[in-house]
């Protein structure tokens, strides 16, 4: 479905990613774990076109999408739930969802998509007229995910969906990932919360200092002594 081959990227003279290659199959959920500053967010931003790729190749369903600007990536089928949610605080919940369906192919099906995300997140329907900036943290995360889903993506990128949320709400967010997977979406998720993310993904990559250090199925990684020591505190 989504494949990156030897991708490098950075900001100015600073290189943040070195030869990153990864593969996400149709319907799969894949995690990217790693310490702070490893380049996880940069990787997400490169995939969604916010940061240009310097070297390497990227394909979506076999079609090359490397170097496309962000708004083209959305049209190609990649939706990105950014770090810290980044809702538009002075737009209402419904307006946030509407802008999520900005691209022409999504606009045409706005009403049915809206019904669908409201069925996934009934809470948002109750708050549809409220300004997004006034939602609670968990509701904001739901809204951010729903906004990304509005474009009817093939691949959903999620950057630290559990950051800054209360433990109970974190659990709800991970339950949501299950729900979204059940809808047949392909998910790529960046998390610091290694233990919990390994419960919801099929496979994961370990990113350290901008390079893939380790890859494997969830089960393998859960048993890996390095991961257990460094990232799960076990």
């Amino acid at each position: 479905m989504l494949s990156l081959a030897a991708v490098s990227a950075g900001y100015g003279s600073f290189q943040a990613l070195f030869d990153v290659s990864l593969e996400v199959a149709q319907g799969e959920a894949v995690g990217i774990i790693g310490p702070n500053g490893a380049g996880k967010t940069t990787l997400m931003r490169v995939i969604s076109g916010l940061i240009p790729m310097r070297e390497g190749a990227m394909t979506l369903e076999g079609r090359s999408v490397g170097g496309l600007p962000a708004h083209r990536m959305v049209e190609a089928g990649i939706a990105h739930v950014p770090e810290n949610r980044r809702l538009f605080p002075r737009l209402s919940v419904e307006e946030n969802l509407r802008i999520g369906a900005f691209i022409p192919q999504a606009r045409a099906h706005f009403a049915e998509r809206l019904d669908w995300v409201f069925s996934l997140f009934p809470r948002l329907e109750e708050r549809r007229g409220q300004l997004a900036g006034t939602l609670s943290g968990g509701e904001q995360q739901m809204c951010a995910i729903a906004r990304a889903l509005m474009s009817k993506p093939k691949v959903l990128l999620m950057d630290e969906p559990s950051a800054g949320l209360a433990p109970l709400v974190v659990q709800q967010v991970f339950d949501l990932v299950h729900k979204i997977r059940a809808e047949g979406l392909t998910v790529l998720i960046v998390e610091q919360n290694v233990q919990q993310v390994l419960e919801v993904v099929d496979r994961a990559y370990l990113l350290e200092v901008g390079a893939i250090k380790l890859a494997g199925s969830s089960a393998e990684l859960k048993d890996n002594s390095f991961i257990r020591q460094s990232y799960m505190g076990l």
């Binding site: 969604s48 916010l50 538009f88 509407r98 900005f102 990304a148």
Partner: peptide
């Protein structure tokens, strides 16, 4: 309108409107 909402969204957070498919 979609365009109008996109304009307001851009005014609030210009860095991520691209992720909404807005150029």
């Amino acid at each position: 309108t979609y365009l109008g909402i996109a304009i307001r969204a851009l005014a609030q957070d210009r860095d991520i409107v691209g992720l909404m498919g807005v150029d």
